[in-house]
């Protein structure tokens, strides 16, 4: 089981943005030469702050947005051209859930109808089979028929997100992209949905791309984690190991900025400088203006994502192979 289900090779996405009515256009490199693959049955977590390009990545992986350069391959085949029969067949195998379940649901339709819709669209099963499947899906997300008859407005935030999840699972997808699926939920409800996702993944053998700004949630759900900063992966590795021993100065700052109950902030790394702005990407390593270890080289040369050991890849001039200059900051 080490065949990748999803292979991303050097994808980039640039948006054009105009400053003011008559201003000149500037290019915003939302995603810049990103490569990764996700093994079947595994979850890749992408963590990063706003503007890091994590949502754009999710959309390109699903083919909702074409990459300007690079390729996305799903189960060995490139993403088919949108609108074709091949594309529809492929799309039934990959689904997504977003942060705002109310925005993803039709307020004027009972939720069971909405779970049923993908079955109708992809013409799966007879009428009775579809009814049974909807019931089964509701049960799989710990809801029942009476919830199915309600409208989205009559459900709580956590229940709505379960409905969205049930609908995404209707076509028995192999691959699920979750973009901040629990960020809008309260802690206790968030835990319910995270547990549900973990259970469903184990039971259905789902492959997932899980996008979040929340390190804790990412660690809980992912097997591998990619840390993004301004459109590039700066660190990649095994989830537990990466958060236990972050190597890139940015990952170290992120981990140390994550508040923990029970310990006061001792030696927290507080980054100075402006937050990342994709429209004004610094030269060299994009993180260098905020990095306390930055040297002259960092401002000029873009560091490549290189293997540190068998598990870890880091894009930093200061972190190389055996010796690690930033270790002391951990």
């Amino acid at each position: 089981m080490t065949t990748p289900l999803v292979e991303i090779n050097q994808i980039s996405r640039t948006y054009r943005m105009r400053t003011g009515l008559f201003g000149r256009t500037t290019s915003v490199h939302a995603v810049d030469g990103l490569s990764f693959s996700i093994v079947k049955g595994e979850t890749l977590g992408i963590v990063g702050e706003s503007g890091s390009g994590k949502s754009t990545t999710g959309r390109m992986v699903l083919g909702l947005e074409p990459p300007d350069a690079g390729t996305v391959r799903f189960d060995g085949a490139p993403i088919a051209a949108p609108g074709t029969a091949a594309w529809r067949a492929q799309r039934a195998r990959m689904q997504m859930i977003f942060q705002d379940p109310l925005g993803a649901l039709d307020r004027r339709l009972p939720v069971a109808e909405q779970i049923r819709e993908p079955l109708d669209i992809h013409d799966i099963g007879t009428k009775d089979e579809r009814d049974a499947r909807v019931r089964e899906l509701l049960l799989s997300v710990d809801l029942n028929d009476s919830h199915g008859r309600r409208y989205p407005g009559a459900l709580s935030g956590g229940q709505r997100q379960r409905i969205v999840l049930a609908r995404a699972l209707a076509t028995r997808p192999d691959f699920l992209v979750c973009d901040e699926p629990v960020s809008a939920l309260d802690v206790s409800i968030q835990a319910q949905v995270v547990n549900l996702l973990v259970d469903l993944q184990a039971r259905l053998g789902l492959t997932m791309l899980f996008i979040s700004h929340d390190l804790r949630v990412i660690r809980q759900i992912s097997s591998k984690v990619a840390v993004m900063y301004l459109g590039r992966i700066v660190e990649y590795g095994d989830a537990d190991d990466l958060f236990a021993k972050p190597q890139h100065p940015y990952t170290q700052a992120l981990v140390s900025a994550s508040p923990a109950p029970g310990r006061r902030s001792i030696g927290r790394i507080v980054l100075t400088g402006d937050p990342p702005n994709p429209a004004a990407r610094p030269s060299g390593c994009a993180f260098h203006p905020r990095c306390r270890h930055a040297s002259a080289r960092c401002a000029i040369e873009v560091p490549a994502l290189a293997a540190l050991d068998a598990q870890r890849q880091v894009a930093c001039h200061l972190v190389t192979g055996s010796q690690s200059h930033t270790q002391d900051a951990a």
Binding site: V187, S188, I189, Q190, A191, Q192, V194, N195, V198, L215, R216, V217, R219, Q220, D240, F243, A244, V255, S258, A260, P261
Partner: peptide
């Protein structure tokens, strides 16, 4: 309900 950031992963107590 808060996922831990270090140590062993445990099932969240929802």
């Amino acid at each position: 309900a808060l996922p831990p950031l270090d140590g062993a992963r445990r099932r969240l107590q929802a």
